[in-house]
């Protein structure tokens, strides 16, 4: 690995100043489970590596039923899984975080790093998109909120400008009869990168099984994670029966644009988008009904 300078700011202010001062030469270090591999491979060569895990705003989970969730970008995935509110109110996002790598990886890896790394196969990203999460970004020019579905631009590229930091995710408070789910397909049973990932969030009508609100997001089937808006829209106002689910699955397939690679063929991925969309919707609905 090339030589680096290591910084470990204690406050957001300090971090933003450091990041601003070094601009393109600096990279945030969250769990390091992507970054260290890239540094070693020489695909990223920042001079400054800024550890963001000692900054309070980035390392906390705050939740209330009124205000919803603020999830620090650098919170390790295992802490998300261990958090009772997360498991109860955002089970889809929680299971996505709990799918990332092994326990060793989850002890370090963060949802913020998962998104900022910009991989189309990132497991947490479709779950965040399904929940309508907004990313709070702070940089030399101030602060902005970015919907997660607009965060990634291409494999490995995001909206983050040099010097900018992702601080936290803002996720709306869960409605009643609402829930989410995330499923992915991998050839092994753990330790694999998603060949297809599908996140879904559903709100059902209080009296019957009609869908009031829905969001569906797809991972690993395009250059960025995809918000399958048409598929979700097709469910609104309808009871969530087999026909509606099939139709949404079809539209999800249409929204995907997978390629052939070592993880699977495009043909296989399209098929599995359909399978997983059905399974994820069923799971989210089951949870919403509870």
């Amino acid at each position: 690995m090339h030589a680096i300078t290591y910084e470990t700011p204690k406050s957001l202010d300090e971090a933003v100043k450091l990041m601003a001062a070094h601009g393109e030469k600096a990279r945030a270090l969250s769990g390091g489970t992507d970054l260290l591999i890239q540094l070693r491979a020489g695909t990223r060569r920042p001079e400054y590596v800024v550890n963001i895990k000692n900054i309070p705003e980035l390392t906390r989970i705050s939740f209330s039923l009124q205000h919803g969730l603020k999830l620090g970008a650098a919170v390790p995935c295992i802490e998300i899984h261990e958090n009772g509110d997360m498991r109860k109110y955002y089970p889809g996002l929680t299971e996505a975080a709990h799918l990332i790598g092994s326990l060793q990886i989850q002890s370090r890896a963060s949802v913020g790093g998962n998104l900022c790394n910009g991989s189309p196969a990132a497991d947490a990203t479709p779950a965040l998109i399904a929940l309508g999460a907004q990313a709070r970004v702070v940089g030399p020019k101030g602060e902005r909120m970015v919907p997660v579905e607009s965060f990634c631009l291409a494999p490995g590229r995001t909206v983050l400008q040099p010097g900018e930091l992702l601080v936290e995710f803002h996720i709306p408070a869960p409605e009643r009869r609402a829930s989410d789910a995330y499923l992915r397909f991998i050839p092994r049973n753990e330790m694999d990168i998603a060949v297809v990932g599908v996140g879904a969030a559903l709100t059902l009508d209080m009296s019957d099984d009609r869908v009031v609100a829905a969001r569906i997001a797809l991972g690993a089937v395009g250059p960025t994670p995809i918000l399958a808006a048409e598929a979700a829209k097709s469910l609104i106002g309808k009871p969530l029966d087999a026909a509606a689910i099939d139709n949404a699955a079809r539209l999800a397939i249409a929204a995907s644009s997978p390629i052939d690679d070592m993880r699977g063929t495009a043909e296989f991925r399209r098929h599995v988008v359909g399978v997983l969309t059905r399974r994820t919707l069923a799971k989210a609905a089951e949870r919403a009904r509870e």
């Binding site: 070693r40 590596v49 895990k53 092994s102 326990l103 060793q104 990886i105 002890s107 330790m191």
Partner: peptide, 29 residues
Amino acid sequence: CLTGDCGACTVVIDGRPVCSCLMLGVEAA
């Protein structure tokens, strides 16, 4: 492997298992 895939470098940090290949030494402070 140096990529967190094999776990042969696992150590326990503050009660959690971690791949020591995916953490900088300076982070152990």
